[in-house]
Nucleic acid binder design. Structure first.
Lengths: 196, 196
DNA sequence: TAATGTTTAAAACAGTTGTTTCAACTTAAA
DNA sequence: TTTAAGTTGAAACAACTGTTTTAAACATTA
């Protein structure tokens, strides 16, 4: 792996772990065994490096993407949504760190926004969430208000994303593999948000 | 207000807004119109000041506390839980900043832990969450597994806390007062997590 | 008033941050 | 081989961080 790529991957680790502001370019260079100046040479600076990290991380295709894109037309809305939720939980609790990166970024951006948040929101997040709104609308029928659709969507996301917070889940349950162990149970409960 | 108190309240603003690591003592001194050295003089340092902030913020009694403490014995579990949820939502979406402080702290601690997180978790959070576990257990009956009780509790918290994230809710709904407007609707949906 | 303890103010401190400089090194084409 | 462009490494830079020092100002009491 060439040096630029090594730095990029070290940067992904650091930025997703600490968030933009608390990430340290010296830590990145240590991990990549590169010189400090390399970051400015290859990328132009911390913010520019972060932008490439965002681009990379949001272009990784995970099981969840496949669900979003390829909705089998023979699939009922309920099945599709269940699949949506399970995939989301799988990605956020997966052993594969690749799948977690973007959710880590999102969490950090929500709590301590970087200069790039507006871009990320507009180009990376809103389009993905639009899909969820569609399916919820379809499922609840045309008589449902917009506020109710929004509420339901956010309830689903809230439930999914909360389980992504490892220290929270561990602190509450005392178990390390709680989500992995209970994915079906959790997804089953979440889907009920809609079916009443 | 004496100087020490002025500094403490400026510190509450800064720490709840930025979190421990990104909070700046110079910003606190500016807000309090105090000299830099005052923080070390009155409190002993940044971490000690943060500890006093935590103590203050978690001792503010809000509508939610009242619910936790005074459970009317004539109240049915369902009613109590609904009250619990509505109070939680009210606190996190309240105009009164006092009520929001502790939730802001919690969010920051979850994402970028400070040296004080273990204390906060043990002394401030676990005791509060124990109450929720109790009521859920009572509501679901003795045949429910511990994992299911934990799952249900976390689903409730996840749903509540997600609505606390203003940029998220605004980004999704395009509305500023969405939670305030829809508290009954949201609480009604969340409570259904349990009653099925 | 004089003496004592408390509070404030300005400056400096040591350590860390992202960035830049500049000379040395490597590579590949002329 | 020579030349030029691309790459690397060590050091220094200015700005910022929390903390400390030092002395002046203030208040209180004898």
């Amino acid at each position: 792996m060439d040096r630029k790529n090594k730095i990029l991957h070290a940067a992904i680790d650091e930025f997703t772990d600490k968030g933009y502001h608390l990430a340290r370019i010296r830590a990145i260079c240590d991990k990549a065994k590169a010189n400090l100046a390399a970051i400015n040479y290859y990328f132009g600076g911390k913010e520019a490096l972060y932008r490439e990290v965002i681009e990379f991380v949001f272009n990784i295709s995970d099981p969840f993407d496949l669900v979003i894109q390829d909705r089998g037309h023979e699939m009922k809305p309920e099945e599709y949504l269940l699949h949506w939720i399970e995939s989301f939980l799988q990605c956020t609790s997966s052993e594969n760190p690749l799948y977690k990166y973007r959710y880590k970024i999102i969490i950090h951006e929500m709590v301590s926004p970087s200069p790039l948040l507006p871009e990320i929101m507009a180009h990376k997040m809103i389009p993905r969430l639009a899909r969820l709104k569609e399916i919820v609308k379809e499922l609840k029928g045309s008589r449902t208000t917009d506020d109710e659709v929004s509420t339901l969507c956010m309830l689903i996301i809230g439930q999914c994303i909360y389980f992504f917070n490892k220290p929270m889940v561990e602190g509450f349950t005392g178990q390390k593999d709680f989500v992995d162990k209970n994915i079906k149970l959790i997804a089953g409960k979440i889907i009920k948000t809609l079916t009443i």
